[in-house]
């Protein structure tokens, strides 16, 4: 009897330790970024683009990368929402429940979501060359949109699936077409979840570097059209960290702090938005 309870307590101890180790890893990551980033942070980082000699320690900031990342992730999110929403509503309203097509699509989205972002970068590059584009905001948006499409479809599907079948039936009984049911009833009921899905995808778009490495280019200017190259925050971190000059490395830490803050803000807004929008839902 004693041996059995001893085994139980040993494993309980190990479980507690493992869980704490994971939390500790999270804490050191956030801690490192804040601790290194805060001293290097200043107002110029947020409000100025790089001026001459920036990468040799000159003055300026990473506004180009902040705006570039927002444009890129924003454009990609809009583009993939336009595809994801009809697809998800189609799967849940138009197609028969649990039909082969639906099951297969869910499976293939799971698979597509597992494709590494560097592969999307390479495919984006192939597409870019095929379309005769140069490294530009547009090419970057295409690569990132491909990357976040399966993520968005999966997240939207999870919430649209939960909309009660009876609601769609009630809508049909009132004489609505499936199109009207899909966009006016089902999508409205799932709106908080849909908004969350869009923001999750946006967050992924902001943070990803490997997919834009080939496609978006990098520039010190704020992009003024879809055809001009765009800087991104993750790449600003990456490139400046590779410098030999401590002043420039400091900037990488500050840029990382900005990136981290953006991700945190997006995830907090996601939570708040989903809470607010769900007030008027039928439960």
């Amino acid at each position: 009897m004693n041996r059995r309870s001893a085994e139980e307590s040993i494993f309980k101890g190990l479980m507690g330790l493992s869980f704490l180790a994971i939390l500790a890893a999270l804490a050191t990551i956030v801690g490192t970024v804040v601790w290194k980033g805060l001293p290097a942070m200043n107002w110029d980082m947020l409000t100025k683009t790089p001026s001459g000699g920036f990468y040799l320690g000159g003055s300026g900031g990473v506004l180009n990368a902040i705006v570039g990342s927002l444009y890129l992730a924003g454009g990609a999110t809009v583009a993939s929402s336009c595809l994801a929403l009809p697809i998800v509503l189609g799967l849940n309203v138009y197609a028969r429940r649990a039909s082969r097509l639906v099951t297969f699509t869910r499976f293939s989205m799971d698979v597509l979501a597992g494709v590494p972002s560097i592969v999307f970068g390479a495919v984006g590059y192939v597409l870019m060359v095929a379309l005769g584009l140069k490294a530009s905001l547009l090419a970057g948006i295409i690569a990132v949109a491909l990357l976040i499409l399966p993520i968005m479809i999966k997240a939207m599907d999870e919430v649209v699936r939960l909309v009660p079948q009876e609601m769609a039936e009630a809508s049909a009984a009132l004489g609505a077409t499936r199109l009207e049911t899909a966009f006016l009833v089902v999508a409205r009921q799932a709106l908080p979840g849909l908004a969350t899905a869009v923001l999750i995808a946006f967050g992924r778009g902001v943070g990803d570097a490997a997919s834009v490495l080939f496609t978006a280019g990098f520039t010190d200017n704020i992009p003024d059209s879809l055809m001009s190259p765009a800087a991104t925050l993750p790449l600003a971190v990456f490139f400046q960290l590779g410098s030999n000059l401590p002043e420039v490395q400091e900037r990488a830490y500050a840029a990382a702090l900005i990136l981290m803050a953006m991700i945190l803000i997006v995830s907090l807004v996601t939570r708040e938005l989903s809470r607010r929008l769900s007030r008027h839902n039928v439960r």
Binding site: S117, G207, V237, F238, I263
Partner: peptide
């Protein structure tokens, strides 16, 4: 409490993990 923390870990960009790797 742990659900949002683990979500946070999933949301941290790859470059930040890299920075943590280089510094720590």
């Amino acid at each position: 409490l742990s659900a949002p923390l683990i979500d946070l870990l999933a949301g941290i960009p790859s470059v930040i993990y890299g920075l943590w790797g280089v510094l720590v």
